[in-house]
Write a protein that binds this DNA or RNA. Sequence first.
DNA 1: CATCAGGGCCCTG
DNA 2: CAGGGCCCTGAT
Length: 322
Amino acid sequence: MKELNERKLIEITPKSPYNFDATVFKPSYYPDYTKSYEKGKYWFVLNINNKIYGIKMENIGSIKKPKIKLAIFSKYKLPSGEIEKIIEELNYRFEFKRDISEFFEKFKEDKILSPFLKRWYGMHSSCAQNLYELLMIGIFLQNTVVKRTVQMTNVMLEKYGTKVKFDNKEVYSFWNPKDMINVPEDELRSLKVGYRAKLFIKLSKTFVEEKIDEFELRKLQVDKAKEKLLKLYGVGPETARILLQESLHHYNLFEHVASWQQKILSHLLFNKKLVPTEKIIEYVNKNWEKWAVLAVHYIWEDIFWQRKQGKKIEWLDKEIRL
DNA sequence: CATCAGGGCCCTG
DNA sequence: CAGGGCCCTGAT
């Protein structure tokens, strides 16, 4: 356990509109020990280049006049240069400075989208994890159901992650690539992660040896970034999609729909049981163009939010396979 | 009890 | 380009 007692307070003013709760908390994501959320407040461990900080963000503004109180927790007092880096990184991961007002302007009269835009006005995509951490999550998601994903994630966090305490919260941070490269495959397999054991080790080696630079990846056009990601062992179209959308924040590449998503989107967009994925992809791109991914995100999170509120949505419960 | 497919991906033929 | 194998789990 690591305790971080040094605290630095800073105010952040995101670009308006910015919907704090809808951006930091996504009802469609699976729960794990790496974060803590309550309305208007979010805690997690920030890992930048294998250095960790405790982060608490608190909403003290509104959607139109956003303001966030940021507390950075560390073991020792941080030099100002390091604090600037942390803020810059948070700007990227939570899109504090990204202007998406064009999206609302363009689609405010859109037949399908407009009610969702009203309900979730100012919501961005966001990602508390770095690229490696989200890749680990992507592997946990592969070829299984939510319950097992949660189980594998938490058991691995307990064994290889670090428990971090700050602001009276305890959350886990992921292991770093170098911590995983010498772990025997059998040891991982005993944690019931199956074929993923090999992937964790192999991917970690790739990150250590070839020094995959997520900061370089961020600068690439979406097609180039995708090409690079697909070269990683164990990363196919679906895992690449997750990384491109969430970690690298690309809103314009909508070209892959997994079969469980296909069922849900068929319902939401066409009110039908099953529409061919090509049709879905064509429809989404035609309607929402370079905002395709964000548009679907609005519709997607809305239904998961309703479900979280206790609304019974039978067809959905069946498709998400808890 | 046994069987089977799943919030993919790799490899083979 | 189709299809088998990978792991474990819970549904049937």
